[in-house]
Amino acid sequence: MNRMSAPGLSAATAIAVVTGLAAPAFGGPDDDELIINGDTTIITEAPAPDHMEYISTIYSGWRFRTDETQALEEDDFDNPAMLAVDAALEAFDTVEGDAGESCASCHGDVESFAGLTAHMPKVGEDGNLVVMEDLINECRTDRMQTEAWKWSGDDMQSMVALIGLQSRGMTMDVAIDGPAAPFWQQGKDMYYTRYGQLELSCANCHEDNWGNMIRADHLSQGQINGFPTYRLKQAKLISKHNRFRGCIRDTRAETFAEGSDEFRALELYVASRGNGLSVETPAVRQ
């Protein structure tokens, strides 16, 4: 594989430099450092966790984006996701449902969630694998006695981002052993399965070819530490499962549903490939 080619050494890069084109960084991630609001340092590069056999260093997707896109995440006043986060903060304090409760009436300040996202997904007491959307909807239906939110709806993903923001800068560390092990293995098997008529696995692009261009896209390692992420292409916060669904659909496959057990397992596995990077939501991507 041409995996180990150093950034900056490809012929394409040389041509881009010579012609002065604002081309994406061919060949690998750039060397930029991410410090948000001048005070929160984000780990965008770390030694790969022990369970990863084929990658030695993990990188946030932020390192693969253009300077213009990167800049939008460096200051919360420029981050277009923050409008949605503000809306979620308002929803957090709003009483809804037959029980007369708001999020705040049980949880107090949203800052009480600091650290939670760094360890999600995880296995709950009932033995099921649980992601943040599950926790939110369980609170809504059981404690607030109101309607569940749609998985990738703006209200749901804004709340997932708000809760994640409380852990921003903390290091991702999801458990993959013990009760999580079978779910993790299921997700790993999916990661290496070549789905669809194009017969492509997650690994084909994001393990074997990260750093390379596929048509106009600069392939990243497919990390999810920045999700929900504000995708400029769609002009809204995008859920992890929505991105999984789109990727598998684009292999010309019958994809899986958002909120499916398959995607919960894949979420755990992909999150574990980012153990060591910072929680970065709400990130901004192209």
């Binding site: 070549r194 669809g196 008529q197 017969e199 659909r249 496959a253 019958e254 994809t255």
Partner: peptide, 18 residues
Amino acid sequence: PSFYKNDGYIRPGDAYSG
């Protein structure tokens, strides 16, 4: 991808419909 093949896939889809 195999361009002249039409079976033996895992979860084949109808083009990009999902």
